[in-house]
Design a protein around this nucleic acid. Structure first.
Length: 479
RNA sequence: GCUGAUAUAGUGUAGUGGCCAAUCAUGCCGGCCUCUCACGCCGGCGACUGGGGUUCGAAUCCCCAUAUCAGCACCA
């Protein structure tokens, strides 16, 4: 009756994976992980768990301008929360010497050159399929320029290591792409002495090979990069990993870019990285979304290259399947009005903590004459059934009279069965929803649920975020 | 503009020439259960972007159109 269904399907097999795989999750440490990262990490993690092998968390911090030092720790926390099975951690900022070594090697192979042309001029030539003069300089001159670069003889922007591809390649994106440059304006938070930085395509190709990646699953924004990296593999005679590129994912009404979220935080639009309106994993966690639900929803989406608009419905449905059985039921009365009920006997209500499992116990709510009811229900007038108590007929904005105990009567009159609270047994409670804050009262027992999820009957699942001086702060999860 | 990719119900997904008058999940509607509009159960609704081909036969292959997306950075 309350068994969890297996709701996520299997992903297709990977080629040459039966004896194990080596994969990686390689984000730029610019902020905490969000739903987009969840897809990258979960898909790769799925296959490492399926086939066994290694899973690298590779920190791609080769652009000091894009490093937020606090992100190093946040990403690790987020990966742990998501249950990603990282086996090895690598910082690219520990590997500059390796990149220099392979860059020198590539120059010797004639697979790259040191370009001193103006960037904009190069770009214009490239679009016209015209090679720049630097492309023809000798290996010796290239190596000299390279050594001079490492010796600090070139200022920022004066020199670029370019990989020689095909200057007339039909795709302008792959023509002699940049692989290394000088950058002195921003010191690296971990390596302040460094001023020559590899660009993503170079460091990624070198590391993917050196670390022995067998399969790479990443977004389709990297399709052109894969083609570029292929040149590096070919120059060195390396074997390419299998590459997969999943499509773009958007979520209605959600900012998914780290820079966009940071901007919003700085402008005061959001309270922080875990603001209820954001798609970061920490925001989802705070709202009561479970890592297993994120995983299931992500695997359900799979790695198709179609662009998709991810919908909250699917994530919420997965999450509900995860949390329902563990969520005790309580009353929360939003926008409460105090109602005097006349003619009723002193009695008490016994409500189950979880209807499908009576053994979990019951909540006892005494009735002594005055109760709190949702304003919206009172305004309807007519008969109401106070759940697990008795019926009332509404006689005014804050008054009602006893109308018998019969549940059958309430049913036959189609009276709403509503949540209520004794006035003397009500804890103030703020329910934070994306649309705003719902003020009201809940059962005092909810104060014991900090950090856990309850279901407020007829309202929805809620994560109890904190209890301050007896006041409950809850985050609405979903219905 | 150039290069590449994709197009199945509201959303996500399965389907790689006949077993597809198309799968599963979610959503919505109806019913059952139930002192929650939860959980569970039953039933229903709802899709192959368009047009040409190829073939005995196409959601599946080819071409064109349209739409969407990605890249064309000294970001990742």
């Amino acid at each position: 009756m309350h068994e969890k269904k297996e709701r996520s399907h299997e992903l297709p097999d990977l080629p040459n994976a039966q004896s194990g795989v080596v994969m990686r999750f390689a984000p730029n440490p610019s902020g905490p992980l969000h739903l987009g990262h969840a897809r990258a990490s979960v898909l790769n993690d799925y296959y490492v768990k399926k086939y066994g092998g290694k899973f690298y968390y590779r920190v791609e911090d080769t652009d000091p301008k894009r490093v937020d030092p606090s992100a190093y720790e946040m990403v690790s926390e987020d990966l742990a929360w998501l249950g990603i099975g990282i086996t090895d951690v690598v910082y690219q900022s520990d590997r500059f010497a390796i990149y220099y070594e392979y860059a020198r090697e590539l120059l010797k192979l004639g697979g790259a050159y040191m370009c001193t042309c103006d960037n904009n001029e190069f770009r214009e030539k490239k679009l016209k399929k015209i090679a720049c003069p630097c492309r023809e300089i000798s290996v010796e001159e290239n190596l000299k320029r390279f050594d001079d670069m490492l010796a600090g003889k070139y200022a920022e922007g004066e020199i670029t290591l370019r990989v020689k591809t095909d200057i007339a390649h039909p795709d302008p994106a792959v023509r002699d792409f940049a692989a290394m440059r000088v950058l002195t304006s921003t010191p690296h938070p971990r390596k302040p002495e460094i001023f020559v930085y590899p660009l993503m395509n170079f460091s990624v190709a070198v590391d993917d090979h050196l670390l022995g990646m067998t399969h790479v699953i990443r977004g389709k924004d990297h399709i052109a990069n894969t083609r570029r990296q292929e040149y590096i593999y070919n120059y060195f005679g390396w074997k390419m990993p299998y590459f997969y590129h999943y499509g773009r994912m958007s979520i209605a009404g959600l900012e998914l870019s780290t820079s966009g979220m940071r901007k919003g935080i700085n402008e005061g639009l959001y309270t922080g990285w875990d603001d209820i309106h954001l798609g970061t994993l920490r925001a989802l966690a705070r709202r009561g979304i479970q890592p297993d639900a994120v995983r299931a929803a992500t695997i359900d989406i799979g790695m198709g290259d179609t662009d998709i608009s991810f919908s909250w419905e699917n994530l919420f449905a997965q999450n509900k399947a995860v949390i329902d059985a563990g969520a005790d039921r309580y009353f929360f009365v939003p926008d409460a009005v105090e109602v005097e009920i006349t003619g009723a006997p002193k009695t008490e209500a016994h409500a189950p903590v979880y209807p499908n499992q009576p053994e979990r116990g019951e909540r006892v709510l005494p009735f002594t004459g005055r109760v709190l009811l949702p304003k919206s229900e009172m305004e309807k007038g007519g008969m109401l059934r106070l759940k697990d108590l008795f019926n009332i007929n509404i006689t005014g904005p804050s008054s009602a009279e006893y109308a018998g105990d019969s549940l059958a009567d309430a049913r036959s009159q189609k009276a709403a069965i509503v949540q209520w609270l004794p006035v003397e047994m009500a804890a103030p409670c703020s329910l934070l929803m994306p649309e705003g804050i719902l003020e009201g009262f809940c059962e005092p027992a909810v104060r014991e649920y900090a950090g856990r999820i309850v279901q407020f009957e007829r309202v929805g699942f809620s994560k109890i975020d904190a209890v301050n001086d007896g006041k409950v702060i809850a985050y609405f999860t979903h219905r």
